[in-house]
Write a protein that binds this DNA or RNA. Structure first.
Length: 419
DNA sequence: TCTGGGGTCCTAGGACCC
DNA sequence: TCTGGGGTCCTAGGACCC
């Protein structure tokens, strides 16, 4: 059996842990630059605030209903996530952390356990120790555990936040209840197509002929169908090093100057290099892109990306900045308004396994230098040591007007209790 | 005026090899 | 008129996830 442990309205719940007065009140969390709604408490959902809603369009509604608005505080959410995961991980030796707020557990050899009770204990313990409410779905396959989780979340009263699919009858009942577009792995395109074929529920989907599913949705769809039928097809996945690493941002205003963009691209490249070093990879390929503001068709639009094959694999910030800025110069055009840019690195080789080249190699002195930079920045806080190509004064110009303290990761921002 | 930021996997077709 | 049989690698595009 598999369990899917999923935190309810995760970012909103994190904010509430430290502001218990907000329990029962509408809470939303915004994306970077305070742009879109990326998390909503149940009360906020009930007000009809959709996922991804642009914040400026909903300001009136926020005020009218006294919605509590927070800027994204990823330092807090990441730390709360690892606390939840470490508690959930105590319930089985086999766990796959699927995202910041979800994990699959596999119960091998738990035949004599009452899994409903295990789920309830998990819910209680995570709730008591972290303050984060979770839902638990348990079923013979991963896809069915996802379905069970949805039921637990939808009917917290009746299920006690834990739902078990452990019979054919419950499986069929659950799949008949679930609209096809809500199935894990069936997105917008496929669900529109399925609906047009009068396939309306998850159950209908499992009744389509294998060959047809395969033709329409490739082996991915076929695996999903089998998993939903209760035939275990998807297994627990090992954590693997990332195959691409990116740093991209939407700017708080339009940028027009090459010099401004060069500073941003340099900072993005440095950030990619840091992430590469932390997983022990070097990249062989780099993509730099710049885009205009697609929401302003009145402005002249221009956007481009450029792929750079590096002469040698590297994770040195100095090298990546050099290549990235050279690439930026090639695609930059005068006279346009730039609203978004980014650096993507890909095509990795392990840093301890680099093939040397007769003609071009990375500067070996960068290796100890980058180690030292990482160490200093780790000790003294992010970005204490920067490259001269970066803006030395700029700390973080992102718009974050409603940022909560980093209660759990910064001693200066720890919660104060008045007694 | 103001609209996020990351990732993964699969397939078909072209270029190439022996 | 007749024209083999296997492979691999790479890329772009499309779909999906949180």
């Amino acid at each position: 059996m598999f369990a899917l442990v999923d935190c309810n309205n995760f970012y909103a719940s994190c904010e509430r842990v430290f502001r218990p007065g907000l329990t029962g009140k509408p809470v939303v969390v915004l994306s970077n630059n305070d742009g879109c709604v990326i998390a909503r408490s149940n009360e906020a959902k009930a007000l009809g605030i959709p996922m991804g809603a642009p914040a400026f369009k909903y300001e009136k509604l926020f005020r009218k209903h006294n919605v509590h608005v927070f800027s994204a505080n990823f330092a807090l959410y990441g730390d709360m996530s690892s606390r939840v995961m470490s508690i959930a991980g105590e319930f089985s030796p086999e766990m796959e952390i699927y995202s910041i707020d979800e994990a699959f557990l596999k119960f091998t050899g738990f035949e004599n356990f009452d899994l409903q009770a295990v789920g309830t204990r998990m819910h209680e313990r995570v709730g008591k120790w972290t303050g984060i409410p979770i839902s638990v779905g348990i079923a013979p396959t991963k896809a069915l555990a996802k379905v069970a989780n949805r039921i637990a979340k939808k009917f917290p009263g009746r299920t006690g936040n834990v739902y078990l699919i452990d019979s054919e009858e419950k499986r069929v009942k659950a799949l008949r209840w679930l609209p096809v577009e809500d199935v894990w792995g069936i997105g917008r395109q496929h669900s529109a197509r399925l609906r047009s074929m009068n396939i309306n529920t998850a159950f209908d989907f499992t009744r389509i002929d294998d060959k047809r599913v395969r033709r329409m949705m490739s082996v991915v769809g076929l695996r999903l169908k089998h998993d939903l039928q209760g035939i275990p097809t998807l297994g627990l996945e090992e954590v693997q090093p990332r195959k691409s690493i990116a740093t991209t941002r939407t700017f708080e205003r339009n940028y027009t100057l090459l010099s401004e963009l060069k500073e941003r691209i340099a900072t993005f490249a440095v950030s990619c290099a840091e992430k590469l070093r932390s997983q022990g990879s070097c990249c062989n390929t780099l993509i730099v892109f710049v885009y205009g503001n697609r929401h302003r068709p009145d402005l002249p639009q221009y956007g481009r990306n450029i792929v750079v094959k590096l002469p040698f694999p590297t994770n040195s910030g100095i090298e990546l900045v050099k290549f990235a800025n050279r690439a930026l110069e090639k695609i930059f055009r005068e006279g346009y308004y730039y609203k978004k840019a980014g650096v993507i690195t890909m095509d990795f080789t392990p840093e301890d396994n680099i093939q040397l080249n007769i003609f071009a190699n990375g500067n070996p002195r960068h290796i100890p230098l980058m180690k030292a930079v990482d160490r200093i920045n780790g000790l003294l806080g992010q970005q204490k040591v920067k490259l001269a190509a970066q803006d030395l004064k700029r700390v973080w110009k992102m718009k974050q007007e409603k940022l909560s303290p980093r209660y759990t990761t910064n001693i200066n921002e720890i919660i104060t209790v008045h007694t």
